[in-house]
């Protein structure tokens, strides 16, 4: 890991609210270029909320989120997306009234360098066969593939992925793991929210552990098996 390279995402003292309830209390972390960083934690720890806050989808947020050195804390969701940050939500966000292909083509191209439709179909061959089906007619695994696939077209190089393995069969989890590793070799910077520590440990460079809307632990070298085991024990305690 190169400690001196500037962070793509630099989150400092991030607070977030759903309506009146204060759910994020000072979250801080960094994501460096080309790295895959995970946010771990139990249900309700604030992982998904952190991604939503970064995307500008919370009712209210405060603190600082630098994306490529630019402050985005006051920006609207659509402006943040246009700077090259892409978001794949926990519920996958597949549109029922759109076909698979329409879902795929929905996010507008934001910059050059996005994957072409052909390259996407090579990475996700299932989607090509089903391109005329309704988006939500796909299986859970295929919907997850679609949710990842459609943000690759936009040219965004920094991805926020919210629990891409949730509720999926082990064989599909394996496929998604392969896709995520492939994305890493292609140079994408990825912030991954995960509960599946085994999955996370295989793909991540660093972990941050959240609890009650705060970062409680940072594991800078995700490869250290004993630390990962400790986290696994903590999460399942």
């Amino acid at each position: 890991m190169n400690e001196v390279s500037p962070a793509v995402l630099c989150v400092r003292d991030l607070h977030g609210w759903y309506g009146d309830s204060h759910v994020l209390h000072s979250v801080s972390f960094d994501v460096r270029p080309g790295q895959l960083v995970t946010l771990l934690g139990r249900n309700g720890a604030g992982k998904s909320t952190t991604l939503k806050a970064m995307m500008g989808l919370l009712d209210k947020r405060r603190g600082s989120i630098l994306f490529r050195g630019k402050e985005t804390i006051a920006a609207q969701a659509n402006q943040i997306a246009r700077q090259g940050l892409a978001y794949c939500p926990e519920d996958r966000g597949i549109f029922a009234t759109l076909s698979v292909e329409e879902n795929l083509r929905l996010p507008p191209k934001l910059r050059e360098g996005g994957m072409g439709i052909d390259a996407i179909y090579r990475l996700f061959p299932n989607l090509k066969d089903r391109c005329k089906s309704g988006g939500t007619k796909l299986s859970g695994g295929e919907q997850q593939m679609l949710a990842i696939a459609r943000i690759l077209r936009t040219g965004a190089d920094t991805l926020l992925l919210d629990e891409p393995t949730e509720g999926l069969a082990p064989v599909i989890v394996k496929q998604i793991g392969a896709v995520i590793r492939e994305l890493k070799t292609l140079g994408y910077t990825i912030l991954l929210v995960e509960q599946n520590i085994k999955f996370a440990a295989k793909v991540a460079d660093q972990h941050y552990v959240l609890e009650n809307g705060r970062v409680v632990e940072h594991i800078p070298h995700a490869a250290k098996a004993d630390e990962v085991r400790a986290i696994a024990n903590y999460l399942h305690a």
Binding site: L57, N78, I80, L106, P108
Partner: peptide
């Protein structure tokens, strides 16, 4: 049409469509 797919998508999940960079 493509414009129509934006409209349908924004009818379903406006927040997510915003997060794709579209001015809903």
């Amino acid at each position: 049409t493509r414009l129509g797919s934006y409209l349908r998508a924004a009818t379903e999940k406006p927040q997510l469509v915003r997060a794709f960079g579209i001015d809903v």
